[in-house]
Design a protein around this nucleic acid. Structure first.
Lengths: 220, 220
DNA sequence: GGCCAATTGGCAGGCACTGACATAATCTCC
DNA sequence: GGAGATTATGTCAGTGCCTGCCAATTGGCC
């Protein structure tokens, strides 16, 4: 059930009845879980409750998701996959940082559809914030992002025709980029704004500060 | 048991017998845990085994550490605290990034002592690598680093006389810096080198790539 | 309809973690 | 140096996450 398979399953047309049913079960589990989390909080929701709401056994839940965290992060995982494929389709002439920046913004354009096919967008946004404020979920999310960065670095190295094992720049760039993305996510979560548009603006503003922030002396 | 208290307890001279005994129990728990983790692996070590090795009840273990992850990361938490205080004692004239860079290197100078007072340095280094390769621990570690970054950003803002809520630069700088630190930790972990010196060299090399990596076009 | 493979449910059990209460060890003050 | 307050520890019972195992059900295919 890694992200790659999810993306494939979501992209490929559902072949038989079996596949379609699995997809439906999975989506139902996600929707049930996120609604319960939203209503009662993550920690006070048990896996049994999620399974019951989705009308499957607890055992089946764990066949779809390795653990409780995974279902909470399922939609973000989908968006991550979308981001990666968006990056791949960026014009090769773009500079690395520009490509990353462009890919984020483009992803958030199309993310709405992907999300809405499973859960209401508003619920997703509340989940996004819940992740930021729930220690266990934040930890899991950060780990997922760390794996994501590894993939991004490889992608950037590929674009630039570099060996990612030899040249540090892809890793360093992606690390800096990822760092900024996390800061904006956190700060956006702390503020009360629900809108995706606020998140976009914040991201752009912060990304544009990367250069100035690294400049030697701010007081000059 | 947050990092702040630990640092205080470790710095302040143990007042009474009670305090000394608590410190000893805590250190014994850490040592027992890290040795077991090193020998049998993190997941295959139970809290009961750790408690037994330290000759306390399981319940007592959980009075010293909120969870199994915490004891695994205890030493890194101490080093983090050392890093923060090292940063505070940096000359105010230093530019932000230079201060961070200087503080890391200085910290690793003094970290040996802090660590050795509880566990052998070699065991600590193996633990460091174990964290990188154990998903659950890595997640917890990344979360701790994220909190650390928040503190660092406040510290940088203080140095520069800025309002961290208004000026994005402290957060952005620290995020980029933290990103690079994580990349070096991961890459160092993937390679086979045990030495702290290798980690130092890698860190310096990667930090120096921050500027070039952000430059518009690498192929120019 | 009937065989094969995949999916699901039910159950038992391990392990992390918590609340409640009793016991034992330190501390304080006289 | 002992009584009483304070704090640390142990024991026990219980909850919830997660897994292995086997039986039952369901969809794919001839």
């Amino acid at each position: 059930m890694p992200a790659i398979e999810d993306a494939a399953a979501r992209t490929a047309p559902p072949s038989g009845l079996r596949e379609r049913k699995k997809r439906r079960t999975r989506d139902t589990l996600i929707r049930s879980a996120l609604e319960l989390f939203d209503r009662k909080g993550y920690e006070r929701t048990t896996v049994d409750e999620i399974a019951e709401a989705a009308e499957v056994s607890q055992r089946t839940f764990f066949r779809y998701f390795a653990n409780k965290e995974e279902v909470a992060l399922a939609m973000q995982t989908s968006v991550d996959a979308l981001f990666l494929s968006t990056l791949r389709s960026r014009p090769p002439a773009e500079a690395p940082l520009a490509a990353l920046r462009g890919a984020v913004l483009a992803t958030w354009e199309g993310a709405g559809e992907v999300v809405e096919s499973v859960v209401p967008l508003a619920l997703y946004m509340r989940t996004y914030r819940m992740v930021e404020s729930t220690p266990q979920l934040l930890a899991a999310r950060l780990r997922a992002l760390s794996e994501m960065e590894e993939r991004l670095a490889r992608e950037i190295a590929l674009r630039e025709g570099l060996d990612p094992g030899a040249d540090p720049r892809p890793h360093v760039l992606v690390a800096a980029f990822g760092g900024v993305m996390r800061v904006t996510a956190r700060i956006w979560g702390e503020r009360g704004e629900d809108g995706l548009e606020d998140l976009r603006l914040l991201t752009v503003a912060y990304l544009d500060q990367l250069g100035p922030a690294l400049a030697g002396n701010w007081r000059a």
